[in-house]
Design a protein around this nucleic acid. Sequence first.
DNA 1: CATGAATGAGCTTTCATTCAT
DNA 2: AATGAATGAAAGCTCATTCAT
Lengths: 181, 181, 181, 181
Amino acid sequence: MAIYTATLHLNEDLGFTGMTMAKIAKEAGIATGTLYVYFKNKHELINSLYLYLKKQKAKNILYELNLNQPYKALFKSLFISSIANAIADFRESAFLEQYYRSPFINESVKIEGMQPFTPIFQIIEEAKKDLVIKDVDTAYIFSCLNGLLNEFTKSMKENQISWNESSQQIMFDMLWGSIKN
Amino acid sequence: MAIYTATLHLNEDLGFTGMTMAKIAKEAGIATGTLYVYFKNKHELINSLYLYLKKQKAKNILYELNLNQPYKALFKSLFISSIANAIADFRESAFLEQYYRSPFINESVKIEGMQPFTPIFQIIEEAKKDLVIKDVDTAYIFSCLNGLLNEFTKSMKENQISWNESSQQIMFDMLWGSIKN
Amino acid sequence: MAIYTATLHLNEDLGFTGMTMAKIAKEAGIATGTLYVYFKNKHELINSLYLYLKKQKAKNILYELNLNQPYKALFKSLFISSIANAIADFRESAFLEQYYRSPFINESVKIEGMQPFTPIFQIIEEAKKDLVIKDVDTAYIFSCLNGLLNEFTKSMKENQISWNESSQQIMFDMLWGSIKN
Amino acid sequence: MAIYTATLHLNEDLGFTGMTMAKIAKEAGIATGTLYVYFKNKHELINSLYLYLKKQKAKNILYELNLNQPYKALFKSLFISSIANAIADFRESAFLEQYYRSPFINESVKIEGMQPFTPIFQIIEEAKKDLVIKDVDTAYIFSCLNGLLNEFTKSMKENQISWNESSQQIMFDMLWGSIKN
DNA sequence: CATGAATGAGCTTTCATTCAT
DNA sequence: AATGAATGAAAGCTCATTCAT
């Protein structure tokens, strides 16, 4: 939707602070008032966009994921496609990161945003049971996945890490080293 | 300084957006105008606080670090004291994370904020040379350190991970698994 | 326009210093924010009003001026209608005089404000060529016109000089005495 | 006095609006609080400076004026020394002009500022009685003197009129043409 | 007398939101 | 549904003035 695209674009250029309703409307090529036809207020627009991005992201990562492969390969697919998705649109990461610390977020939206990623939690649980990855609380595993994903993405955005077969292998090796049993 | 403390406190409660000069002043127990005696404008206040926190952090982590120990022990000291420092004041992490995406940041401040951490980069370089950790671009190593640090801290803040000998060991094992040669 | 009228009114009562955006809006019967719909900022509002008044003034003075009359009659028409225009709205003179010394003025606006008065300069040049008025730099002639205009207007505002056939004759005689050849 | 000089200097550079107590103090090389040792408030500082300048001006013009000369020569002395005084320090004119339209002025100060100039009014009265200048209300005569003085001074400041024997003669001829009988 | 840090009322400006069209 | 002019609360910031030293 044009409004979502405009919001992401503006967030990239001006940050959460500079992202006004007037500018979003202008960027989307509509009148300010029209925004309020589609969203009750700014709060709702931001929250909707958040959930939209989360769902989109889950879909992109999980849609073509082949579950019938060894765990190590499965985790590699998962991790690499997550990074691929993030660098495909840095604007999304920029938005999600700021949203997380914004006054717009609330517990229920946070939970709703997690929902589409439940398959990943299931995979982690099974891999733990099969002794392929460390048998520690899932929070640790998830922190590794997320932490490395975020920082590798940032480094790639700042051109400190490139994006090719070799770098993918390095990044996954690091992830695997941290979680494998 | 009272102004810094007030700003961090407010940021924790209301986020970057809700952090107004009037509220900072009130929280610090001074008049609005007094803020402008110490800082030319909001921009400068935020940037000063950023650099102050960065220096403080580097000092806390590096001050008592014993450099005469095997690399693995050295990295453990470094990583665990980084987390300890972060959870000692979650407000600092909350601020630093938002600052990074704010319209206040600029390249020169970013570089100035990195300066106090140069000893860590040197340690990484040496450890690579001695074949103790992976011989990959430092950006990869640094991403592991930072990424795991950030996410573990977040999980601890949300009480998904506890803070004790055992959890410290798990967290460091994960870091070490990701970077060791 | 209501905003212009309100600004002039306020300037008369409170001077340039007391002329706040809030008061202008209130006087004009609109909200403060509305001022910023029409003018980017106070600077632009003041400059727009200046140029508006200058153009208006030139139009009033020159519109019905009959160019086919002897020079002396022409100068009388010009001078008397200038004074008439000034006393018709003392607020305009009060504004223009303060604008000239304000931080709002700049060279380009000054020049733009002069433009509508070029016909007067042409008349002066021709009268000099025909030896009707003194053949001195136009700056001298213009100073006489302006200086007497300003001071006579002030005196009339303070009721030291009245406004009738007889006073008009005295004032013009003084002007003519100063510039005639 | 250093405070007066600083105020005039600042007024020239920044105008009445940009002339803050802090800046005056800094320019004068003293502390802000010290200004309030010498003047009850800004209002009084400005008014004092006004009266000081008026007295100074009257003294400069009238001090060495030789009253035993024909009226025409007397008026020339008066007019030329007035201009000389004005161009000696344009800052004074700039201040006086703005003061006149400021919220600081009041009727009693205005009258007090006129006092030192009474000799000039007497000269005008006598010249009228002796039929040397026009027998019209003194307001007309005074307007001529003041109006031409102001505008000639402005033109000289903007380098449209030079300052020498010849220009002095032109300017006085214009004044005399306007008031002579 | 002299200081200058501290004050807070009041200024300019922004922006989410409304509503008549 | 779509518009965009109008709103006014609230933001960042200034500055005449005070007062403890």
